[in-house]
Design a protein around this nucleic acid. Sequence first.
DNA 1: CGAATATTTGAGGCCTATCAAAGTGAGTGG
DNA 2: CCACTCACTTTGATAGGCCTCAAATATTCG
Lengths: 261, 261
Amino acid sequence: MIAGLHHTPPRESHAPARASSRLLNTRLWNSGLLSPEELHALEDAVSFERVYRSGSILIREGEQADTVSILLDGWACRFETTRGGGRQLPALLVPGDIVNLDALMFDRLDYGVQTLTQATTIALPRARAQALFAEHPGIARTFTWLAIVENSILSRWALCLARRVAIERLAHLLCELSVRLGGKDEQVSSFAFPLTQEQVADALGLTAVHVNRMLQALRNDGLIQTCNRHVTIPDGAKLRRFSGFDPAYLHSTAAPGFTAG
Amino acid sequence: MIAGLHHTPPRESHAPARASSRLLNTRLWNSGLLSPEELHALEDAVSFERVYRSGSILIREGEQADTVSILLDGWACRFETTRGGGRQLPALLVPGDIVNLDALMFDRLDYGVQTLTQATTIALPRARAQALFAEHPGIARTFTWLAIVENSILSRWALCLARRVAIERLAHLLCELSVRLGGKDEQVSSFAFPLTQEQVADALGLTAVHVNRMLQALRNDGLIQTCNRHVTIPDGAKLRRFSGFDPAYLHSTAAPGFTAG
DNA sequence: CGAATATTTGAGGCCTATCAAAGTGAGTGG
DNA sequence: CCACTCACTTTGATAGGCCTCAAATATTCG
C-alpha cells in the first residue's frame, strides 16, 4: 500500500525537540513526510492562532485567500453554492485538516469556508508556503501528498453521491468521520458530531427532512445511536458492510513514503 | 486569479530546443510551471508510447501501479465500482491529461483506468517521478499544481452530482469538455464525443435510459446538436447559463505561477 | 422565559430508476 | 451483396426514492 519510507513515522512518544509544536496533531505532521526540522520551519512560518465562533465565514466563495489555513480545533466545512440556492459541502474539516491547500497555488478559491463549531486556526502565508515548498523537500512532498489524498477522498464522495442511496451515503459519512476523527478501528466507536441535520444534508446532497428520516432508520436498525450531538457506532464492521465503506481511500495510515531525497 | 509568474508561459511559437517533445501538448507542460530543461528531463524519463484498443483496462481497481501514465491521444476514464455493480467515473481523461497522478505517492490506486477509444499513453516510473520531483523544483510544483487543479474539478463534479438535475449535469459536462478539449471560448463549438450514453450515465450518476432522454431534451431545446459521435454547441453562452457552468474551476489558463524558487 | 433554531411528522408530487422491447447501425461471415 | 450478430439508441410503462410544502414539537440560547 505504501511506496517506500522516508523517515520514522510520527508517534506521540517520539516527539521532536520542540515537543509542543501546534502542528503535531495536524495532517501535515501525520503524513509522516516531514523531518522534525521541517516541522519547525513550518511552525516558524505560521501565524498566531485565531479563534472563530461557530458559523463564522472564514472565506467567502470566490474570495481571495493569501494564506493556507490549518484547523487546529473545532469543525469547519468548505461550501459551494448554485444559483438556485443549492448548497453543497465538498469537504468537512476536522481538527488537524488543512482548510484550503489550494491557496498554495491559487489566490482565489472556488469555494467558501465556514466554521461549524467554535474553531481555532493558524495560517501560513502563501509566499512563505511557496518558499518552504521550494527549500524543504519534505514540505513539498507533504503538500503534494495532502493534495493527492484529498483527490482520493473527493473521488469517493463523488461515488457516494452518484451511486449510493441516501441511507448508505449517511452511513458511509459516519464511517468516514469515525476513522478521520482518530477511530482506532475498534468495533464500537463514539464521537462528538456537531453538525445539524441540515448541514449533513448539504454534505450528502439531500434535504434535512430526508436526513432526519434516514437517521431514524439507522437508529431503528440499531446501526447507530445518537445522544445530544454524539454518535455511537455499536458495530463498526456492520455499519461498514452496510454502507460499502472501505477505509483505504482515506490513506490515513501515516508514513506514505517517498524514496528520493 | 493567478498567484505570481514563474517563467514565460508555453506558446506554440516559443517551443523549447527539442521542439518535438511528446509532452508539449500535455497538462504537464501547459501548466506553465516547467522550464524547458525540466520538460526535457521529464521527456528523458518517460517510456516509449503504448497504444491500447478502445475498452482496454489499463489498471484494474485496487491494482498496483508503478508508473504515472500520461494520455497522449484518445479518451480514457477512471472508474470505481460499488458492490451492487454500480459504476462511477470520477474522471474523464482527454489527450494531455495525467491518467493517475496518485501513482506518484501510492503504489495502489483506488480506481481503475479504462480506455474509451483507441488511446496512446506514455509512462513515467514512480521512482523516476519521485527523483525528478526532488531534483527539479518546477516539476514538483507542476505535480502539485495538477493535483490541486484535480481537486477543484472533483469538487465541482461533486456539486453537480449533489445539486443539479440530470439535464443540467449533462449540459455542464458538455461545457466542461468543450473547454478541456481546447475550446477557444467561442460562441459555437464542436468536438468529437466518443462516449456511449451508458458511459455518460456512469460519469453523471444516471442511467443510460435517462441520459438518452435528457440528450433529446437538450437537442429539442436547441442547446446542442449531435451527429455521428460529434457534439455541436451552437450557443456556448446559453448552454453555460443553462447548466450553471463557470470555467474558473478548471484553471485551464496556463501560467499558474509560483514565486519562490 | 421567550425567540430563534433544530428536529420530527405527514401528505403529495416530481425526477429518475427499473424493466421490457423495438429500432438502428456497424461489423462479420457466408 | 445479403443475412446475421452484437452493441447502442430509442421508446413506453410503472415504481420508488427523495423533494417540497406545511405544521407541530423539541431544543438551544440570550
